[in-house]
Design a protein around this nucleic acid. Structure first.
Length: 271
DNA sequence: CAACGGACCTGCCTGC
DNA sequence: TGCAGGCAGGTCCGTT
């Protein structure tokens, strides 16, 4: 599920249920995530109060009195607000049970997600310290991308998905952004002009923010039950559409593999 | 150093 | 029907 828009949708969905709440207890049914859930975390968290719910890249940062819970959804993670009485299913690994009678339930079949604790500045945590700029920050633009690309021969799609360069752009939105900007995903990053980078950064911002808006339309569902942001209902223009007609020129969309991941592009519209 | 492949883990779909 | 193989929205680590 999660690229930046899905994580932001999750953040907005859970925030009102969490803010100001005291943590009754943490229930860890399966600690074996990408990093193990610390065995003493339940004891550490009990009684603390949630003060903020932030996001950095695809990481959720739940600030409580005296520290921060760092949460990542990996490839298959999701969050729901449920009754703590609701029986846990197979991949419901962690519940954060709150004083208002709800639980934040973390589900993750593939267990690529993680949940750790820090008392330091979470932005300096080894998981986050290396992260590049937020694409939706007003200060981030195509000039930043262009500067990062200098001398690089890596394919632009690879650079766009590199969290050191810019956070939050995963496989789907990298495909969508490059299509919108008319850039071939295999083009060497260092051989793209500044004007084209300006266009690409605008495309990234537009794709991500429009997607967050769509996620917003399903927030109610998300909070109530189904935990699923608008991802599936989204109108994807290029991703997953191999051999179908390009929405711009009508020609067939091509599928290739880059860095072990599926890339879709229109050979006529993207150069 | 940049760049790439592999690893982590489960579920689901396809094709034989 | 059963089973093998490939693939999935992310990230880190090791090797060239």
């Amino acid at each position: 599920m999660p690229e930046l828009p899905e994580v932001e949708t999750a953040r907005r969905g859970i925030e009102p249920h969490l803010l100001g709440q005291r943590i009754e207890r943490l229930v860890v049914r399966e600690p074996r995530l990408r990093l193990p859930v610390p065995s003493d975390l339940a004891g550490v968290l009990a009684g603390r109060v949630i003060e903020e719910v932030n996001r950095r890249g695809k990481y959720l940062l739940i600030r409580v009195s005296g520290g921060t819970i760092i949460l990542h959804l990996g490839m298959s993670g999701s969050l729901r607000i449920v009754s703590p009485e609701r029986p846990a299913e197979r991949h419901d690994h962690v519940d954060l049970v709150l004083a208002n009678g709800v639980a934040l339930r973390f589900t993750d079949p593939r267990r690529f997600g993680l949940l750790v604790w820090t008392t330091e500045n979470p932005l300096k945590h080894p998981l986050l310290a290396h992260l590049g700029p937020e694409p939706l920050d007003a200060a981030w633009d195509g000039a930043a991308l262009w500067a990062a690309a200098k001398g690089k021969r890596v394919a632009i799609k690879g650079m766009l998905m590199d969290a050191n360069v810019v956070v939050g752009v995963g496989n789907i939105y990298a495909n969508e952004s490059l299509f919108m900007a008319g850039i071939h995903p295999g083009r060497a990053a260092g051989r793209i002009s500044l004007p084209r980078y300006l266009r690409l950064a605008d495309a990234v911002k537009e794709v991500l923010s429009r997607s967050i808006e769509q996620g917003g339309t399903t927030l109610r569902d998300f909070v109530a039950e189904d935990g699923r942001p608008g991802y599936f209902s989204q109108s994807l223009k290029i991703y997953g559409r191999s051999d179908q007609p390009c929405l711009s020129c009508g020609g067939p969309i091509r599928e290739i593999r880059q860095f072990g991941r599926a890339t879709y592009y229109c050979p006529a519209c993207q150069r």
